[in-house]
Nucleic acid binder design. Structure first.
Length: 277
DNA sequence: TAGGATGATTCTCA
DNA sequence: TGAGAATCATCCTA
């Protein structure tokens, strides 16, 4: 029996159905359709069930996206996708096994009834009822499989989100780059998507991390301008020196990503009277 | 080890 | 949908 993150595939043998083939079994309630539908929808949304487009990993990628995970390729993300693919694989294998077992068992029971029909009369209704019982039993086991799969996906997802919460401080160079951009655009510290992408590349972080950083920075700057004054002056001076150096050499102004400073951003524009409102 | 710094998440609003 | 604000969780340093 395989186990991923506490997910155990429910094994199936025909033996486990023999004791329940009784009239009492026939009177058991139908599996709740609403619950089954919810499980089906969830498995579909998670990319576990449903049509497989471009392999399980594609479905898992879609599921990762549905888990609020951007299209980055971090180790955590690929690990998440790999585990989701594994869950998907097990789910489909088990589902096939159930279907096969169901068909085999139905045939087996039909044969038994045929044998019995030699000694006693068996009506088509009775046969139909037996087949119905078998199918209902297998359906309830399928539902257990779906429930286990949903649980496994939920556990995987929550662990993934927990992992994301664990943070690492950006390296010094990345913080420098972000600060340089922030203080040189203090009058409008809202980088465009392109700028965010470029900053992300330079700092080896994702675009959403850049957005987070700027969001945090704007608020924290606004809340305590006094505290950041020194930092602002430092970066302003730094950028001014870079700009002066560039103009002295007069050759780097056309660099694609470094329009006005060695840090790659426009000339310093730190002006105490032009800050975030 | 306490407290500040910092990245991430969530909620609200325009 | 992006920004602001509050908050959480972790890191870092004295």
């Amino acid at each position: 029996m395989r186990c991923i993150l506490g997910y155990r595939a429910v094994g199936v043998t025909t033996a486990c159905f023999v004791p329940v083939l009784s009239i009492r079994g026939a009177q058991e309630e139908e599996p709740p359709d609403a619950q089954l539908m919810r499980l089906d929808n969830m498995l579909l949304a998670e990319g576990v069930s449903g049509p497989e487009k471009g392999g399980g990993s594609a479905a898992a990628a879609a599921a990762a996206a549905s888990a609020g995970v951007g299209p980055d390729n971090s180790a955590e993300h690929s690990d998440y996708r790999a585990k989701l693919t594994q869950i998907r694989g097990i789910y489909h294998t088990e589902l096939e096994k159930y279907e096969q077992a169901c068909n085999e068992f139905t045939t087996h029971v039909m044969n038994l009834l045929r044998e019995q029909s030699r000694t006693r009369p068996i009506s088509p209704k009775e046969i139909e009822r037996m087949v119905g019982i078998i199918h209902r039993k297998f359906s309830s086991i399928q539902m257990q499989l779906k429930q286990s799969t949903c649980e496994a996906v939920m556990i995987l997802r929550s662990r993934f989100l927990d992992a994301r919460r664990k943070r690492r401080n950006f390296n010094k160079q990345a913080t420098e780059i972000l600060n340089e951009y922030f203080y040189s655009h203090l009058s409008n510290p809202y980088p465009s998507e392109e700028a965010k992408e470029e900053l992300g590349k330079k700092c080896s972080i994702t675009v959403s991390q850049v957005s987070n950083w700027f969001g945090n920075k704007r608020i924290r700057y606004k809340k305590n301008i006094g505290k950041f004054q020194e930092e602002a002056n430092m970066y302003a001076a730094k950028t001014a020196v870079s700009a002066a150096s560039v103009s002295a050499h007069g050759s780097q102004a056309n660099s694609p990503s470094t329009p006005n400073s060695a840090g790659g951003y426009p000339s310093p524009c730190y002006q105490p009277d032009r800050r975030i409102q």
